[in-house]
């Protein structure tokens, strides 16, 4: 998935210091790379190539190895996410109850595709795997807020809440 408008990397010195702390904490333990990536993504919000390079050097593994792992797992993102991260569950229970139509409606309203971020950096859309709230299907989340038992007509109201 390609994303439009990827901003230039602008990590701060504080973030870099935190990253070094994380690397040193895990360095030398078996299987350190994935825990380091998880924590690094918490610091930066995503894992651009600049961050991957620092991790590769810090853990003494090749950049190819780091990039290979980052792109293998869905949790790791090469691109920044929006201020409001919309995630529509496409698990079976939600799909059967029409979450595909809800996703279409959001894409149409925001004018972006899954994996992309609006040009103002406000919204990004992800299609997620089952989040386990099948009892509330169909479900979407905006950051940590969960909206369940949805219909297509609810979409505008939810997006309006975050528009201003």
């Amino acid at each position: 998935m390609s994303a439009k408008n990827v901003p230039a990397f602008n990590g701060t010195k504080e973030q870099e210091a935190k990253l070094m702390e994380i690397i040193n904490k895990h360095k030398g333990t078996n299987g350190a790379l994935i825990p380091v990536l998880h924590e690094a993504q918490e610091v930066y919000g995503y894992l651009p190539i600049e961050v991957q390079t620092m991790i590769a050097e810090g853990l003494d593994v090749s950049l190819a190895e780091v990039y290979g792992v980052v792109t293998f797992y869905a949790q790791f993102s090469l691109y920044p996410k929006g201020q409001y991260r919309i995630a529509v569950c496409l698990g079976t229970a939600c799909y059967v109850k029409g979450s595909g139509d809800i996703l279409d409606k959001i894409k149409e309203r925001l004018g972006i595709e899954v994996g992309e971020c609006t040009p103002d950096g406000k919204f990004s859309i992800d299609a997620t795997r089952c989040i386990g709230a099948c009892g509330l299907a169909p479900v979407l989340t905006v950051n940590d807020e969960v909206y369940g038992r949805l219909t297509v007509d609810d979409v505008d109201g939810i997006l309006d809440k975050y528009m201003n």
């Binding site: 078996n30 299987g31 350190a32 790379l33 994935i34 825990p35 990536l37 998880h38 190895e65 290979g68 792992v69 293998f72 797992y73 869905a74 949790q75 790791f76 795997r129």
Partner: peptide, 25 residues
């Protein structure tokens, strides 16, 4: 604890172990 990172194939036993070892699952 070891956190998974969102790969369905890691539910397969040998892939899960490769993932704990820190590689592509």
């Amino acid at each position: 604890l070891r956190l998974g990172a969102g790969a369905f194939v890691c539910g397969e036993e040998t892939a899960l172990m490769t993932s704990i070892e820190g590689h592509r699952g």
